[in-house]
């Protein structure tokens, strides 16, 4: 039996702090390992800041859904911004020196690395990004 938790936030960067606090609280409620709480925290920060900064103001609210099963945490992030599939976005090329380092573009790469799986679908006018995090 999975325990599910939902949070709806406005598409505004000032909401990210509230998301961070919510992740810490649900980590305790769902008895998640610290490593998983960190990964959730990071993936929410990166996914939400992308939606808010690049969504052109079309995303009014963002819904976060977290469900815990025995060996897995499943996350769905839903927004009404323009269709965007981060699961196929190209990763930035690694820089060899400080001078060459490109700023930005790292967020999706971090999600890809810290989540166990990542998938996307467009349902009507809603973007749904699904992530899973293996436990243990």
């Amino acid at each position: 039996m999975a325990a599910a938790e939902t949070l709806t936030v406005a598409a505004d960067l000032s909401e990210l702090r509230r998301v961070g606090i919510w992740v810490a609280e649900l980590g305790a409620r769902l008895a998640l390992p610290d490593k998983t709480v960190f990964a959730l925290d990071l993936c929410f920060e990166e996914a939400l800041s992308n939606i808010i900064r690049h969504g052109g103001g079309a995303a009014k609210a963002i819904e976060l859904n977290v469900a815990r099963a025995a060996d897995l945490v499943s996350v769905i992030i839903a927004d009404t911004g323009p269709a965007f599939d981060p699961s196929v976005a190209a990763a930035p090329l690694p820089a060899a020196t400080v001078e060459e380092a490109e700023i930005g573009g790292l967020g999706i790469q971090l999600i890809r690395k810290f989540a166990t799986t990542m998938s996307y679908c467009r349902r009507g006018d809603v973007n749904e990004l699904s992530l899973t995090f293996a436990l243990g």
């Binding site: 961070g20 960190f38 990071l42 700023i103 930005g104 790292l106 967020g107």
Partner: peptide, 12 residues
């Protein structure tokens, strides 16, 4: 905790 915007500050 560190996310990409923190990395940006450090790289800049």
């Amino acid at each position: 905790f560190m996310a990409s915007m923190g990395i940006r500050t450090i790289v800049l």
